[in-house]
Simulated assay, not measured.
Amino acid sequence: TGRLDSRAMRRIGFPWSPALVTRTCAAVGGTILAARLALSHGVACSTAGGTHHAHRDWGSGYCIFNDLAVAARWVQREGLARRVLILDLDVHQGDGTATIFAGDPTVFTFSMHCAKNFPFRKPPSDLDAPLPVAADDDAYLAALAQHLPRALDAFEPELVLYDAGVDPHREDRLGKLALTDAGLYRRDVTVLEMCRARGVPVATVVGGGYDEDLEKLGRRHTTVHRAAVAVFSDAASA
């Protein structure tokens, strides 16, 4: 309706417009669709989503509705999956997701992020893996290899919702980490291979990314889609 007060809009970070409403609802719907398709086909990749700073009753940090939370609840309500793991590899901690599912044994929240970055107050996820500023490909992938198998094997999810934010990239203006293009690709392949090896469907969203060169940024956001083709191409042709 455009009736949010100026304080609420400042917290979100976007000016209100009808186009913003359309975009926001479409992104949430896209994540729900990706979750449904992943449960049918093993993997599905949205071209939007990852609004992990949105809380239950307020938006923040360019996030209005938490599409990951909505999709998790949707698949549970529809009886399609009971146990959902939300894997958040955006460079910023998923504070909204963490607070929404705090104390909920049916949703496991795992955030690996830059320790010294937004949000400055980080409510605990079920598993947080904070990384130091300037962590490079090797450090990042080692941390992922340490934590993700444990989370998957201990929680045994029926669906993974994967926020494949590209803001850990070394050229990202808000990231503070130092991953290369190759490092992001290896990250996404690693996640998808681990899920596939365990027979866990995975739905991906693009998450954050901040670069004035939109062509570079757009290419960077396709990383998870290219990784999905590489990991699941034989399944599609079977």
Rank of each mutant, 00 (worst) to 15 (best):
L37Q: 12
L4V: 02
C114T: 04
I86R: 01
T24H: 02
G29A: 09
V205L: 07
A44Q: 05
F155E: 06
T222Y: 10
T106A: 14
I12C: 05
C25S: 10
M9L: 15
S40D: 14
L87K: 00
L184W: 07
D57S: 13
L80T: 02
P201G: 06
G94S: 07
Y162V: 11
H53E: 13
Q93K: 14
E193H: 09
G61C: 12
A71T: 00
L184S: 01
R173A: 10
A44V: 08
D188F: 11
Y62A: 09
L85D: 03
V166M: 07
R36M: 11
A48P: 00
Y162R: 09
V70H: 09
A71C: 03
L161H: 02
D153E: 15
G2S: 12
D181I: 04
F65R: 04
H225I: 15
C63R: 02
M194S: 03
H53Y: 11
D172R: 00
L80K: 10
A145G: 15
L20A: 09
A197P: 01
V160Y: 12
L20V: 14
G208R: 10
S233K: 13
A81Y: 06
E215H: 12
V231Y: 02
V205F: 05
G49N: 11
L89E: 06
A34R: 00
E212Q: 13
V133F: 12
E212P: 02
H55Y: 15
H221E: 13
A135E: 12
G183R: 10
G30H: 00
R198S: 05
G50R: 10
E156S: 14
A238E: 13
W74K: 05
V70K: 09
E156F: 04
A8T: 09
E78S: 11
A8R: 08
Y62H: 09
S6T: 13
A227P: 03
G207C: 09
D138R: 14
F108G: 01
I12T: 04
L179D: 01
V166C: 14
A236P: 07
A115G: 07
I100D: 08
V75T: 02
L161A: 09
A203L: 08
H53R: 08
P168A: 01
G103L: 02
Y162Q: 06
R121F: 14
A235I: 03
F65P: 01
A102S: 14
L148W: 07
Y210N: 00
H53V: 02
T190C: 13
D95N: 15
R82F: 01
I64Q: 00
N117T: 04
E158M: 07
D95R: 04
T97K: 03
D90V: 07
G199C: 05
L131V: 07
P168M: 04
G29L: 03
F155V: 12
L159G: 05
L148P: 03
